[in-house]
Nucleic acid binder design. Sequence first.
DNA 1: CTTGTTTGTTCGGTTCTGCCGAACAACGAT
DNA 2: ATCGTTGTTCGGCAGAACCGAACAAACAAG
Lengths: 307, 307
Amino acid sequence: MLNPWRLGLLSRLDTLGTIRAVAQDANMSASSVSQQLAVLEAETRTRLLERTGRRVRLTPAGLLLARRARAILDHMDTVEAELRGLTEDPVGLVRLGAFQSAIHTLAVPVVTRLAGAYPHLEVQLLELEPHESIPALRGGDADVIITATDFVELPLGPDLEIVPLATDPIVLVASPDRPVPRGPAVLSAYAGEPWALDVPQSYMANLTLRLCRESGFEPRVACRFSNYLMTLQHVEAGLSIALLPDLAVDRRYRVVTRELAMPVNRTIAAVVRRGSPLRAAVNLVLTALRQQPDAPALVDRPAQEAD
Amino acid sequence: MLNPWRLGLLSRLDTLGTIRAVAQDANMSASSVSQQLAVLEAETRTRLLERTGRRVRLTPAGLLLARRARAILDHMDTVEAELRGLTEDPVGLVRLGAFQSAIHTLAVPVVTRLAGAYPHLEVQLLELEPHESIPALRGGDADVIITATDFVELPLGPDLEIVPLATDPIVLVASPDRPVPRGPAVLSAYAGEPWALDVPQSYMANLTLRLCRESGFEPRVACRFSNYLMTLQHVEAGLSIALLPDLAVDRRYRVVTRELAMPVNRTIAAVVRRGSPLRAAVNLVLTALRQQPDAPALVDRPAQEAD
DNA sequence: CTTGTTTGTTCGGTTCTGCCGAACAACGAT
DNA sequence: ATCGTTGTTCGGCAGAACCGAACAAACAAG
């Protein structure tokens, strides 16, 4: 683990030229500076200094590290400043875009919770499907969006920051009156059932068709709805079964859900614009989204350490 | 000064959820983790943790810092990796672009010095004026360029990295046979002299005209050369005086130089492409450029520290 | 309601890192 | 040749970081 204080000493050595000057500038003794730089050399296992005459010069590696050190310290300063700017209480308007099934399971609870706790914060809710939410975010028409993809790593580019929220498994949903065995569902067992599908070419319709065909049958289409709630009603009435994202299954409907024997997971993530320091209000919404109790936690990175 | 080890603990807390898990993951006791996070809160003077029930949750500020911590640690890892990649000895071709007057004062000495010390390193020298060197660098036709501007902060964008090398003062140059008083030169004293100018619309010609006019006279144009060496010969012969960048004045010519009473300085800087890790050979050339003994050192940044 | 387990925090003692001053070695200027 | 300057090494000390134990609080189970 590279120590930034030592990096700062190296950077100062680059600009001031002599160890004594660095020591004076940092209110330390020259011996300490010498020792710390030696430690830095040991940690990085690289010769950074070169004794030439009675002074010291930076090796190519040392000079590179000195420049990079400045960038790192700037980075840390920026973060610190951003953190301080977050102290002020969150006020203003935050426009939160979410796709349909995320609205009532994620967005609405968050908005109601925040509305009670932060009276000066206004959260505007926009229904934006994944394909339209990214441009809206980039164009400044939304401040935070909730989107879903099949991959954990979204190829969105460096101008956007992704905050994973949860994984959303695709589940089989059926009426409790129907004979549905417990445990993970094997699709081929439902080959003869009437299926509720999304509208043609939509994400879920394509996915359902693909999974059914991979299981060896062509689903019998009982209906096509553009709205998950109508699908749920149809299923609840015992008229069909369907594949839906778990998030879309409102628990108020009398339906049973089963995970798939061949699991299919989407990643639900919040996205914000990067670059300018994050507004306190926006970060608050982000935090509230992550701390939804019913959303399964998502481990995103083990944060490896070096010595 | 924000401690990255502590930041790492915070990041792990974000992903693992509980302090004990962090302690186990980091081979520490839970008490230490708790203490270190408390220290982090004190250093940043911000509440990062929130006790909720018998576990702990991150506040909005804490969650923001955890995410930023990951970015910082990634940054440091990247630098470390780059540094390790620099250990291998520098081989290959480095194309160094420089403008005319920088070639024989900066570039050539560096190339000759490196040629002796690093037999596997090949440095190709290209004459590139400032206005054409930047596109050449961006287009991959050069690996390092030496350029000059009137401002220390070059508005080049985030894809290029600037390494200040020296400041280059504009000086008055005249034949030693001419009566030139010692000390800084006041231009109005040379109103009647014959002037050697660069070609019309060139940088130095425009600058000379502007400075003369600001001093209250129109210079009498004795000649116009596109090449500083020809100008120097003309001046040496006693036929004219001229304003030239100090770097352009080859000491082999029998001329005298005077600083200006109203100093005009250009900044000489090296520029490299940012983004991909720096090649060892390129960094070596960069280092050699910075360590030219006759180039006046340039203090670029005091590297401020916070506690 | 009580008990047991889990979680985070506080306290006292130990270990280790970081710092200083002095002494030392090398270089360069007078 | 002498002196001042620069960087490094060594012994000693202060403070930071760590651990284990004890404590407080919350949730689950009996």
